[in-house]
């Protein structure tokens, strides 16, 4: 399985990374060698093996439906790169 530059471009778009041409070239090469290394796990037969998404055998961790304090809006917006009328401002969507 070889990763092409086109694959890299697709993955970069999914990841929202505006890679430069140089980066695309470099990542194509590197990703191939890394993925080759990852492919080692395909030597193993995992037929019937349950996947481990969580290492801890714990279930049903929940909280009660109680309302607490929200953050002051000043604090909410403190780190905003751009804000207006108590909201986060973003450039045009389309």
């Amino acid at each position: 399985m070889r990763i092409t530059k086109k694959d890299v471009e697709h993955v970069a778009l999914l990841s929202r990374l505006d890679l430069t041409e140089e980066e695309k070239e470099a990542y194509t090469k590197q990703l191939n060698s890394i993925i080759d290394y990852m492919n080692k796990i395909n030597e193993l037969d995992t037929e019937g093996v349950e996947p481990t998404a969580h290492v801890l055998p714990i279930y049903n961790v929940m909280r009660e439906d109680e309302v607490g304090e929200s953050l002051d809006r000043e604090k909410v917006l403190e780190n905003a790169p751009e804000k207006e009328n108590g909201q986060f401002k973003v450039p045009r969507i389309v």
Partner: peptide
């Protein structure tokens, strides 16, 4: 209108 808006505001 989303298509005409120069910018948008977000309320979470």
């Amino acid at each position: 209108k989303i298509a005409e808006a120069e910018s948008s505001l977000v309320d979470y």
